[in-house]
């Protein structure tokens, strides 16, 4: 399979296999008109199989969203065809405006323009809880 190399943009690598499409949607990549490749089930020594997303545009990437949804991914930053930075994305301490609290009793369900904000409460098990009602976040939303 041939995919053109990137001139200016990002390669999101080590996405757990099967999560690439969801991450593509969450990052809103379908709205961009640049070249984007979503490669699924790429053989990986470390992971067995992985997904990769290549974006040929210098966009603003929501790293918190990437870290929450696909922890341990690597974001490679390409400038003028050269890899200039390799970022390992850790779990962010806070997630603001990334996911929504689903608890109907939470103040976020009715307060005007209140950003949904979650805090990492258990890094080992990737648990995030709403800062307002402590409801556990789900990666399946």
């Amino acid at each position: 399979m041939n995919i053109d190399s990137i001139h200016n943009g990002f390669v999101i690598d080590h996405i757990p296999a099967g999560r690439g499409m969801k991450l593509y949607e969450l990052l809103g990549l379908d709205a961009l008109d640049c070249s984007i490749a979503l490669i699924k089930n790429v053989p990986s020594k470390k992971m067995g199989k992985k997904d990769i997303i290549k974006i040929d545009a210098d966009i603003s990437l929501n790293l918190d969203l990437i870290g929450f949804f696909a922890p341990d991914v690597t974001v490679n930053i390409i400038r003028d065809g050269v890899l200039v930075e390799k970022k390992s994305i850790a779990l962010p301490e806070y997630l603001t405006g990334v996911i929504r609290c689903k608890n109907p009793r939470c103040i976020t369900s009715c307060e005007q323009e209140l950003a949904h904000k979650f805090k990492l409460t258990d890094a080992e098990n990737h648990v995030y809880r709403c800062i307002y009602c402590e409801t556990k976040a789900s990666t399946e939303q």
């Binding site: 009793r105 939470c106 103040i107 009715c110 307002y132 402590e134």
Partner: peptide, 10 residues
């Protein structure tokens, strides 16, 4: 006191 959880934090 508020019926919604998190209202006092807001």
């Amino acid at each position: 006191r508020h019926p919604k959880e998190g209202a006092p934090l807001v």
